[in-house]
Structures are given as structure tokens and as C-alpha cells.
Design a protein around this nucleic acid. Structure first.
Length: 540
DNA sequence: TCTCACACATG
DNA sequence: ACATGTGTGAG
């Protein structure tokens, strides 16, 4: 089950994310001695809790190795897991409070890349973002005690390049750079998302950024995968690093792959010196704080540690921000445990990526499906024929039986603004979401222009928050060439339907995304609701 | 660039 | 034994 031991976790270098208003370097030593806010009783101040949560990236050293070489993640039609897998150690939660942990993967910039001369180069403008989907950890919602008990693994999350993916996997464009993010949402029944005190935090470990590919480009990456991924053991050389016996095509003699040869020819080139961004922090009085941490890599010798084959703005730093939703509206129930949802990263228009070194739109609108399902099973999706035993989630859990469809959007915020979440308005999540609603067929992800927003579903949840300013302007801009933070983000949450075997995949064909909002609005809007999806994608 | 069947890996 | 996660290399 757990490949990793808790003890091992503690010792590994990890990037620590911590809130609380003070910036800290995410050095290995940090998370060990940090006191949790002493004066605050965890039981009384939920919002405080979320700020006290610390998250450490598991296996950070491995992530760093990949990062230094320019991490690549394979994306396939059927969905491919990430390796290294995304696992975190969480501390500082209120043991009794319930939280929902989820991840999403947002564009890291607005470029398309190509691998030339053994290095990644910008090859043009990015394709319109895919519908952003969220991967909700299958254990969600669960108590703080549960999450803190052991590593939280998102290893079952899968990436796909199929724009019409029916499995709920996270959809990405090949040859684009992405940044995984972790979101922790307080899901206490007394403070369900959307309620006055609901809060969530977003943690970003920059060493987990990667470029999606359909086949590995950099042989260094291939080797790292082979050397470290147990499933690729078969490709490991007996002793010689590069030699291996081909078991294919009946060959039984040592062979050297093309990649190896190519790689060797090009081999030596350090190139690129990544630069460690200084830890930067900024917080907003209103309750939103947005931190950027240094990776914890020593500034001295490892300047190049961060160098990696692809251009990157902020190497190895951790970005954290926490939002307190201060609205005074009703709240949603959080009873759904399902891994994938639409996220806030979908692109809306051409300006989308333009801005964003800190593409970190506050994402969530998280209307959870109603409670009808209390069990974990209930939340796993149905229609997972392709999935192993119905485990789509991170950890062997049964399929959900919910049928929810959500739609949400987030407005972009200015690049250098501080994050603030102010007003939120929201409407109750439709009850029928729980049941078996026929899901619309496909998302008309009218790519770029969101001019004509998808008609808002009758019942939708809308959160409007005030625009937030990114923490630091150029904070770690080691690469000026990579500009922009995402201006826009909108998210759509996807809910699977109950495990109805027959309807499975097809019915799911659509999740949706689409954001009606203009990129210039000063506020964010999160909307959720049922929506139908259009049949075509203009992918390109 | 991308897709597929394949041998071999985990669990 | 089975289901499923790997990179390969031809197409």
C-alpha cells in the first residue's frame, strides 16, 4: 500500500508551505521546528486553522532531480499517471475539522514549447487551455486527523491529451508547461464551502512544474523515470546504466536506444542556470495571504540546482495563498467524494495566460454534491470501465455514485496584486445534482472567447470575490522572457454521475468549463451548476 | 507528433 | 492469475 513510510517522509527534503502570515523559507529544517500558532485554540478558529496548515512536498529530492532536468509528463489518450507522483505531508490541521484536498494543474505560462538541441525552447503561443479539471482526493472530505495521519497521495491522478476525455482525467495540451497545485478546502459541516467562514488554501510547489509530452523528449528524463519508477524497472540496465537487454522483438542482445545515442551525442550541456527566487511574501489584511517561498535549496552551491532545461520564471519556489471566503450567504454541503472536477484553469480568451507568473487564480468554487452519499463509494465515479476497479482516485477507493455537474469560473486578477477575497454571493447548489442528472454531452469549450458565456445554469453558485493582487511583482523573475501570469481563470467543476454502468463514459462526456467572465473584471466569479456541453472542441 | 501493441513491472 | 502501470519503437 504505502510505499513510503512515515518516517521516511519526515527525513526527506521537502518543501514546506506554511501560512500564518510569515514567510518562511521552505528549507528542510523549517518545517521541523515551526510552532503552530500557539495562542489559537484550534477548535475555535477555523479560519485560523487553514492558515496554520503546513504542507510538505513528499519526495522533494526526486522532484528536484526531475526539475533540474526539465520535468516531462507523458499524456495519453487513456490517461497517464504522473511520475514522480504528487504526494504531500500535511500538518497543522484541526484534527476534527473536515477538509477537502484537491489538486489541479494550471498552465505555467502561455507558451508552446519544443525540444531542440537538447533543451526546451519556446515555440510559440500556447494553445487555448483545456477545460480545467480538478482532481479531488478520494478521501475527501476527511478530518484533519485523517489527512495528517499519513502521506496524502495523488498518485492516481491521470493526465490526458484527449479533449473529450470521458474519464475525468486532467486534460492538458502537449508541449505546454504546467504547474500542479494543491488546494485545501475546509469542509466542516458547520462551515461548508461558501459559507461565511469557509476558507481554502492553495499550495504550489514549483519543483513540480512540468512540460506535457506524448513521448519523452529529453533522455535524461526518460532515464530518471526508468531509474525511479518501479513500473519501468524492466527498462533498467543490468548494471551498465545505458545498456539493457531488449526483450522485444525477440532480441536478446544488449541494445542502446536511439534516445540514448542521441542524448549522448548531445550530452554535455549544463545550460541554464536557474535562479532561486527569494522568498517573497505578501498577505492581505482581508484574510487572504499569498506567499511565495524559496525552495529551500541552499542559495550557495545549488544555484544551478534549479537550472532546468526549460525556461521558468520561478524556480523551485513554493507559492501559497489562502483565501477566506467572507460571504454571508448560504453554504453548500460537502458530501461528495469524487476525484475529478473541473477547475479554474481553463482558458477563456487570448489574454488568459498573458499575465501570469503567478497563475494562481483562486480557484475553487466548490459546491459539493449534496450529501446523499456519505460513503466514499458514493463519491467515486461510475462509468469507469477503463479504470482499474473503479479506482480513479488516489487510493483504492470504490466508485462514486454521485452525479453532479458543476460549473465555475474565476475571474482573473491582475498580475501584481494582492489577493483578497471579499464579497461572495452564492446560490444554493441544486439538489438534483446529487441524483442522476443526465449530464450534458460535451463541453463546448469555445475556447478562447468567452464572450458568450455558457448560459448560467439555473441554479448556480456564484462567488464573487474582489480582485486580488499577486504578491510580488517580479519576485523571482529569473526569466523575464516568461511573462505572464494567468489573467483569467475560470473553473468548472465536474462531477461524476452515480455509478451507473451503462451510462458510464458516454454520459460523462461532458464536463464543462467555460467561463463567461471577462478577463478584466476586478472580481472573481465562481459559478457552478449544470450545464451542457457542446460537442465540439476546437482543439487544434 | 501521436498512437498502438508489446514485454515486463507492481500489487 | 489478474488488473494495470511502464517505456519502446514501428507505423
Amino acid at each position: 500500500m504505502l510505499q513510503e513510510k512515515a518516517s521516511a517522509v519526515a527525513d526527506e527534503g521537502m518543501t514546506v508551505a506554511q501560512s500564518g502570515g510569515r514567510p518562511e523559507l521552505a528549507s528542510d529544517s523549517l518545517h521541523l521546528g515551526l510552532p503552530t500558532t500557539p495562542s489559537i485554540p484550534q477548535n475555535n478558529e477555523p479560519d485560523q486553522n487553514i492558515e496554520n496548515i503546513k504542507v510538505v512536498l513528499h519526495d522533494r529530492e526526486l522532484w528536484k532531480k526531475f526539475h533540474e532536468a526539465g520535468t516531462e509528463m507523458i499524456i495519453t489518450k487513456a490517461g497517464r499517471r504522473m511520475f514522480p507522483s504528487y504526494k504531500v505531508k500535511v500538518t497543522g490541521m484541526n484534527p476534527k475539522t473536515k477538509y477537502i484536498l484537491l489538486t489541479d494543474i494550471v498552465p505555467a505560462d502561455d507558451h508552446r514549447y519544443k525540444f531542440c538541441d537538447n533543451k526546451w525552447m519556446v515555440a510559440g503561443k500556447a494553445e487555448p487551455a483545456m477545460p480545467g479539471r480538478l482532481y479531488v482526493h478520494p478521501d475527501s472530505p476527511a478530518t484533519g486527523a485523517h489527512w495528517m495521519r499519513q502521506l496524502v497521495s495523488f498518485q492516481k491522478l491521470k493526465l490526458t491529451n484527449n479533449h473529450l476525455d470521458p474519464f475525468g482525467h486532467i486534460i492538458l495540451n502537449s508541449m505546454h508547461k504546467y504547474q500542479p497545485r494543491l488546494h485545501i478546502v475546509k469542509a466542516d459541516e458547520n462551515n461548508a464551502f461558501g459559507s461565511k467562514n469557509t476558507a481554502y488554501c492553495t499550495h504550489v510547489f514549483h519543483e513540480t512544474a512540468f512540460i506535457s509530452v506524448t513521448s519523452y523528449q529529453n533522455h535524461k528524463i526518460t532515464q530518471l523515470k526508468i531509474e525511479n519508477n518501479p513500473f519501468a524497472k524492466g527498462f533498467r540496465g543490468s548494471d551498465e546504466g545505458d545498456l539493457r537487454v531488449s526483450r522485444f522483438q525477440g532480441k536478446d542482445y544488449p541494445v542502446i536506444s536511439k534516445n540514448m545515442v542521441r542524448q549522448r551525442l548531445i550530452s554535455s550541456h549544463g545550460h541554464l542556470s536557474g535562479k532561486l527566487g527569494a522568498g517573497v511574501v505578501s498577505s492581505h489584511p482581508q484574510g487572504v495571504s499569498h506567499y511565495q517561498y524559496d525552495s529551500g535549496v541552499s542559495h550557495s552551491d545549488s544555484q544551478e540546482a534549479l537550472s532546468n532545461s526549460f525556461p521558468s520564471r520561478r524556480e523551485s519556489s513554493l507559492l501559497y495563498h489562502c483565501f477566506k471566503h467572507r460571504d454571508n450567504t448560504r453554504h453548500l454541503e460537502l458530501g461528495c467524494k469524487r476525484p475529478y472536477l473541473e477547475s479554474a484553469s481553463a482558458v477563456t480568451d487570448e489574454h488568459y495566460f498573458r499575465s501570469a507568473p503567478s497563475y494562481d487564480p483562486p480557484l475553487l468554487s466548490h459546491p459539493y454534491c449534496s450529501e446523499a452519499l456519505g460513503s466514499r463509494e458514493a463519491c467515486m465515479y461510475g462509468g469507469m470501465e477503463g479504470e482499474a476497479g473503479g479506482t480513479v482516485g488516489a487510493d483504492d477507493l470504490p466508485a462514486p455514485s454521485l452525479n453532479c455537474n458543476m460549473w465555475a469560473s474565476v475571474q482573473p486578477y491582475p498580475r501584481y496584486s494582492m489577493q483578497t477575497v471579499e464579497a461572495m454571493s452564492y446560490q444554493p447548489f441544486p439538489a438534483h445534482f446529487n441524483s442522476t442528472v443526465s449530464v450534458p454531452s460535451v463541453v463546448p469549450h469555445h475556447s478562447p472567447s468567452m464572450q458568450h458565456p455558457h448560459p448560467a445554469p439555473p441554479d448556480l453558485v456564484t462567488f464573487t470575490t474582489q480582485r486580488v493582487l499577486p504578491p510580488t511583482p517580479s519576485s523571482a523573475s529569473s526569466s523575464p522572457s516568461v511573462p505572464a501570469p494567468c489573467d483569467t481563470a475560470h473553473s468548472s467543476l465536474f462531477h461524476r454521475k452515480p455509478g451507473s454502468p451503462l451510462r458510464s463514459q458516454r454520459d460523462f462526456a461532458g464536463y464543462l468549463t467555460h467561463s463567461p467572465t471577462s478577463t478584466r473584471e476586478p472580481t472573481y466569479q465562481y459559478q457552478t451548476g449544470l450545464c451542457s456541453v457542446g460537442p465540439h472542441w476546437t482543439d487544434s
